[in-house]
Structure formats: structure tokens, C-alpha cells
Amino acid sequence: MAVPLRRTLIALHRATCNNLKSADGWVDVRQPHPLVVPVRGKKRHFIPPAVGIKEKTKADPEARARAAGLVFRQQYVERSINISCTAGIFDPYIPPEGDARLSTLSREGLKQRTEQLRQSAASQLAIRKIKEHDPLFNTKTFPELAQDIFIQAHMALTQFNKEKLHSLVTERCYPEMTRGNRLKTIRWSFVESLEPPRVVHARCPDMVTKTNLYGQVTLRMHSRQILALYDRFGRLLLGSEDEPKDVLEYLVMERHVVNPYGRWRLHGKIVPAWAPPKDPITKTVLIPGPKLKPGEDFDALQFEVPKPQSVQWSK
């Protein structure tokens, strides 16, 4: 069996070679190119739209994702709300122009006094609402309590006592008092009261619901204070520790009257439009000194401050 099978294969081989030799004249036989079989990659269910496609809308990606069987996660825009205090001053008090300068016996002073009496009707209604929830509230004793809170809050600010400051000021007033005080030293003291503080305005607004009431009382305080602000190098930026200044302020005290454990805290200040501008802060600049070798001492008397070089600006 092996011999006849071998003869058959040899004959087939010879016939194949003869056919290839005869076809070599008119067929260009070359080495075939390698066969590349594409391999299917990972299937992408959602392909984002290309940039610049016409009539592209926000609903297109969501529609394509739904067609692919995917569900877009809903995005919730949440804002934190604090119910322990309000976000601002409701119906702020408008101080009369020339306050603390005009006498009540003058003509203009009498006009201001009559306007205050006319506007006191809404304040009386607000005071009644506050007394319903806080029976100990009294317009005669409250100014002394508010002034004491004001002094303690500023003393806590100079000592950077955050826990005590949070208990004396509201969450709205805290960032306003602490903004820009980093790496600075504050020296503040209360000298005396030029006029006894008094209540000039009162409101009892509500928030979210009609039963969620807040008491806002505006206090007029005319006092003498000392303020000095130093930078981290000990240079004076503002004020002076030796020269007290007369300060007229309108403080807003607030309390969550519905909360039985609520307390009166400093909520903000009202700055009238006719108030004089504040003193600018003196900016300090670091002057580079000489390079000293180890063991040398700096002599300030012989050191000359280097002057800036003149620069020629070309047009």
C-alpha cells in the first residue's frame, strides 16, 4: 500500500510543477501580502458628539445615552441653609444725615426727631412680637446688654478666640469681621461712651415659614475707641494706640426668637451714605538689606537704602 501511494504523490507533484512552469511566462508570480484580520475592540455604548456639529443641543447626549441603554445620573444643585440666623438685614434703618452733630433744639434736629417718631410705629409692633417670645426683652435695659456683647466680640477678635466669637456674632457677621486679618495683629479697646446707647429701630421678620421669627434690633452707639492694626513684621498699618477716636455706629443685633435657647448676637453694622470714608491702610514694602558674612553685624547708620534704577521707556 505504501509503494502505490508514493507513486501517486510523486506523479501529482510532477504535474503541478509542469503547470507552474508553463504559466510562469504570462503570470507574474509574487510573494503574497500578509493577511491582516481586524480584531474588534471594546464596544463603546456612548460616543460624545464631535466639536462643531450643527444643531447640537444639550439633549443629544442624553438621547443617545438612552438609546444605548444608559441612564444619566441626575445632578442636584443643593445650597446649604442656616436657620440660626438670617442672610441679611430686613428693612435696614436709615440714619439721618448729620446725626451726632445737630442739636435736638435746632430746627433740623427737631425735624429728624419727628420723622423718627413717625417711623416708630412699625418698630413698636416688632417689639411686641419679640416680647411674646422673649418676656425679658426691654428697650431700656437691652442697650447695655448689646454694648457688652459688642465689646466682648471685639476683644475675642483681638485674641483670635474663634469659639467665643462664634457665640457672640452670627454666621453672617463672622466672615465680615475675620476677613483680611490673617498674619496681622489687632489692638482694640473701648474707652468710654459719649452718649448712652439706645434702640432706634426694630423688626421681626420671618424666614421659610410664617412662624419662624427672628428679632432684629438696631442700636445707636456713640463711643470713643482705640484701634491699631499691625502687619506680621510689627509695622503700623492703621490707627494708633495713643489717639482714641470718636465712633458713631449703628449695630444690628439679632436673635432667633422662636428658639428658646437662642441668644442675642451681633449681626452687622449699618454704614450711612453720608459717613466719611475710612482711613486707607498703609502698605509696607520689604527693602532688601546688605548680604552679611557669618559673624558680621548690621550697622543701620552706615547703610544706605538703594534707589531704584532709572528705566528709559521707548515709544
Rank of each mutant, 00 (worst) to 15 (best):
K56L: 11
Q225C: 10
A122F: 13
E296P: 03
L286S: 08
A15Q: 08
S123N: 12
T57L: 09
I94E: 15
V77R: 11
Q302A: 14
F190S: 08
F142V: 02
P49E: 11
R263N: 12
L117E: 06
I47Y: 03
Y93S: 04
L145S: 06
I270H: 00
V217A: 01
C204L: 00
R44S: 13
N181P: 03
A11Q: 10
P277E: 12
M253R: 01
N19D: 08
Y76T: 15
I10E: 13
F72Q: 13
A2R: 15
R7N: 10
A11I: 08
T209W: 01
L157T: 09
P95V: 06
V200D: 01
Y261A: 15
R40S: 12
K58L: 15
R220I: 01
V36A: 09
Q112F: 08
P92W: 02
D60K: 09
L125F: 06
R265Y: 04
N181I: 04
K140G: 03
V51A: 13
P4D: 05
S123D: 15
K131N: 04
E304Q: 14
Y214W: 01
T114A: 06
P49Y: 04
R255P: 01
Q119H: 07
T86H: 02
G25W: 05
R232A: 09
T141L: 06
P280S: 05
R224F: 03
R179P: 00
P244G: 04
H133T: 10
L236D: 00
T282D: 03
R6P: 08
P32D: 10
P135R: 06
A156P: 01
L168T: 00
K140N: 12
V305S: 02
I10T: 07
G98W: 05
I270Y: 02
E296V: 07
G295V: 03
G88H: 02
H201N: 07
P48C: 07
G109P: 07
M253K: 01
G289S: 03
P290S: 04
V39P: 03
E243P: 01
N259K: 12
P32F: 05
T185M: 01
N161H: 11
R44D: 15
E171R: 11
R179S: 10
D242I: 05
V27M: 04
R7V: 11
P290K: 03
I83M: 14
E78V: 15
G69F: 03
S223D: 14
E249K: 13
I83F: 13
D99R: 12
A126Q: 00
L236K: 01
Y261T: 15
C85L: 01
K54S: 06
D99I: 11
I281A: 00
I53K: 12
P280N: 05
R7I: 09
I130T: 00
L102K: 05
P294G: 03
V71Q: 11
Y261N: 15
N181V: 04
A146H: 06
D148G: 08
P34D: 13
A100V: 07
T16C: 09
